[in-house]
Design a protein around this nucleic acid. Sequence first.
DNA 1: CTGTTAGCGCATTCAA
DNA 2: TTGAATGCGCTAACAG
Lengths: 344, 344
Amino acid sequence: MSEVSQGGRQPTIREVAAHAGVSPMTVSRTLAGGVNVRPDVQQRVLAAVRELGYHRNENARSLRPGQASGLIGVAITNLGNPYYGNFALGVEEVAAEYGRRIVLGNTGEDPARERQLIADFIGRQVEGLVLVPSGGASDHLQPERLGDIPIVLASRRVYGLDVDAVLLDDVGGAYRGTRALLDAGHTRIGFLGNVRSVFTGQRRYEGFARALAERGIEPDPDLVQREQQDVESARDAMRRLLDLDDAPTAVFSSNNRNTVGALKEIGRRLKAGADVSELPAIVSFDNFELAELMPVPVAVIDHDARQLGREAARLLLSRLGGVDRRGPARLVEMPVTLAPSSTD
Amino acid sequence: MSEVSQGGRQPTIREVAAHAGVSPMTVSRTLAGGVNVRPDVQQRVLAAVRELGYHRNENARSLRPGQASGLIGVAITNLGNPYYGNFALGVEEVAAEYGRRIVLGNTGEDPARERQLIADFIGRQVEGLVLVPSGGASDHLQPERLGDIPIVLASRRVYGLDVDAVLLDDVGGAYRGTRALLDAGHTRIGFLGNVRSVFTGQRRYEGFARALAERGIEPDPDLVQREQQDVESARDAMRRLLDLDDAPTAVFSSNNRNTVGALKEIGRRLKAGADVSELPAIVSFDNFELAELMPVPVAVIDHDARQLGREAARLLLSRLGGVDRRGPARLVEMPVTLAPSSTD
DNA sequence: CTGTTAGCGCATTCAA
DNA sequence: TTGAATGCGCTAACAG
């Protein structure tokens, strides 16, 4: 009968050593790959490990100089958003490929929470950080304040912070999406977006406005709704747009949450008897499942959140190799694709 | 000028102590709440902490007997699925409320990966585990093998493993969903589900079959498709169902992925000119965004993944209090609601 | 090839 | 109220 973990406490390297009749160092060496340990001794050690259910204490291990913790801190604004779920998945995958684990925190767009999380991550000796910044001040993110732990920003950048970042081609995507609407003959185009302080919101508005400007159209303030963070408020904003005397014939939605809110409002109106022809066409920055089944045409500015996560993790891990640990900040801008609603 | 982290290394308690002109113990006491430290000394210490950018090393701290790591290990089958993203969010929220952080791993339904992840989590001295089990053998999950670290299973149970679990009312939900189809006059009802080894797949099929049996209907093997794990294969399965000479007039889909796949196939047929009246009604176990906008009626067996996560975390944390650390296994079954497609 | 010594950062215990 | 000694689990450096 094996005698796993009698006391509820984890067995230590010393207990394994005693069990195998060797010194702790021999156990350590065996677990580190077995260099300079006789094969038969290794077998004895490994048998003892199995019998006792021993797991090397990574925390104690990382205490030694030169031993990294194997942890990556990941702080995300909203895990409940499928977009960020996929992003986290991408980070996790690449981290796992490199033997790292992720410690995950949700900031909920709250800068104070972000600050706490990062402080905690540092205390846990993470090797690096991946952050979707929630906006606001950047002082706690300066490299010195992080003890020179590498950080990669994702989706958004922070003004005045010169670190690696992975962004989308927000401006270009929004520009092309808006152009598509203009080319289809729309001139009154609504805009649904984030609060101004959100980096992507700003950039996507920029692409939107640029496309209009090229056609000599000044954005109508009534048609620009920029304060929505969730589906409910997005729906309200869409309602306001559609209730205008001179309602837009098309709407540019600058993210997932706004698109879903807008479509919910459209669904309500259809059920209330509205005719599809009265309802606006939509271009959505961010894809979503089943977009092709929507009752109004929804073109999608698509991109792969998981790839974004993978790229962020790759940037970060490249800083851990030691070579370019302190190289100049790199900016990766991932392409987006504009797909009409009919494709799948 | 403050002199944060000169060498790229994190400052230690000793450096803070030297900076403040006290002993390391005084720093430790101050950070632990400040009992038996003179207020003015505390101020000096805290000033030194700020100036040096000191973060207590949680790994070293947890090395001391009686000090927990503050980590919860969470292993999920697929973070990319919005359902599990929300689940993870729920776990994270409650963990954070109790000062815990989560270490997250994605198993991808791979038992080997699950085993590695859990071994790693134990090595990181997690205080507890939350697991969406990927099926298969359960030996590595037995309490002794986990060194008596509390574990909570979510969504699925593992045969032969008597530990805390949070489940949905799979059987009841599937039963009621199927009943609703029967009451609407359907007698040929298709079933889209998971591979047999998945716990929820089994349970949901059970509810489905029970409802049919009550009406004296034997499930037609042609109508039962149970091998789909992703959207693509679900779509193929739906295609097979609809291509039958005697195609079903309604389909029960036992999860999110299957529902999306089924709807994609429906979308394809609509675009190819099919008439809505020829297409089956759908009941979906698992809600999804914009279900109310689908071209065919989709009733939804809904539940809150985030709540499921919160409940799992609560169960786990109650085991960490020390009181009922070793009480009998508890089973929480969360209710589900059946909502017709017309509601929002 | 194997073992001994020492110390990583911290907090408990004991002494002052 | 403060500090010194000690050891948590592990492994680099050295000795054998």
